[in-house]
Design a binder for these strands. Structure first.
Lengths: 166, 166
DNA sequence: GTTTTCATTGAAAATGAATTTCATTTTCAA
DNA sequence: TTGAAAATGAAATTCATTTTCAATGAAAAC
């Protein structure tokens, strides 16, 4: 299921795609890997959506551009994108790994509807500060955190009310 | 791997075990299920540790008391315990579902060392308030949240420094 | 430009945790 | 008791993820 996103970023520009591609190419060179048409196609498909994509979902999108690209390559390319900071994994806690693009994005968190799976992004400086503070207090060098809120969105609540009126 | 926990609770008392057992039995009756020796044994093993247990780890502990109890029963009993509020799932983001007992515990969160897997619990009222606030702002009825911090603990940092000195 | 060397690719197989199936055993209400 | 319903646990299944491997392709070296 593809998820809606509500946030403050316009859709990605041609310019951003070019820059992202450069980041990937530099990364490939750095770690001694090769640049390929498949990897570029996958990156472009990935950047063209604002959703939180599972490997399977991205694979389906990629196939619209090049039906020959296999699931395995998408899977491996997503790992590469995560390595060079273009993608990051978001765990929605439903057993499926999802990625979102991270290029030029503010730090944010997600609130997920447990009925329909749609999600809202929100921003909270407090959470980032908390990571620092708790790390300091317990002598951890913190690297990252995850924060998700789960609940029922307005839409689903209305649907539920309509389905079984009192 | 069993994980250390650093927190403010003493180990569970005989009295608490009795009460927890009552909670389970009431729950079983309510949903028309039966109370069995296996379920009691599993509950007791579960309460006797302060760790974040995977099904597999709990299964191994349970087998010390009764080698005949199978993985499946532990798996199913953990779900039952979660249903009646005695256990709750904690996702440490390593692909394995873990449970901790929830009986008489303050709301808390975890900071996990990504090297050794040990974890520290911490308490933060702010996070709970944030859940409320963000929910209100986006018209979600929130039910829960997850918040974990990842980093390197003091021990592992020292070990690393010793292993590859400058 | 050609060769040579590795990395890449993608189908298929493997993995591994979670979950379900099913024949047998146990619980418990009547 | 007893019989209907639930529980049990070994084995099978599911399903996302990850690895394998033979064929292909990229790019460095010649």
């Amino acid at each position: 299921m593809l998820q809606n996103r509500i946030d403050d970023q316009p859709s990605i520009s041609r310019e951003m795609v070019r820059e992202a591609q450069e980041i990937l190419h530099r990364h490939l060179k750095r770690v001694g890997l090769k640049q390929t048409a498949q990897r570029d196609t996958i990156l472009r498909s990935f950047l063209e959506t604002r959703d939180h994509l599972s490997t399977d979902e991205l694979h389906r999108l990629v196939q619209k551009k090049d039906a020959g690209i296999g699931y395995t390559t998408v899977y491996r390319t997503l790992k590469l994108l995560a390595e060079c900071g273009l993608a990051s994994e978001v765990a929605f806690h439903d057993g499926i790994a999802r990625y979102e693009h991270q290029y030029n994005r503010r730090s944010h968190h997600h609130m997920v509807c447990t009925e329909c799976g749609s999600s809202v992004e929100f921003f909270s400086r407090e959470v980032d500060q908390l990571e620092q503070e708790i790390g300091r207090r317990h002598h951890y060098t913190t690297t990252r955190h995850t924060f998700q809120i789960y609940g029922i969105c307005e839409n689903c609540r209305k649907k539920n009310a309509a389905a079984r009126p009192v």
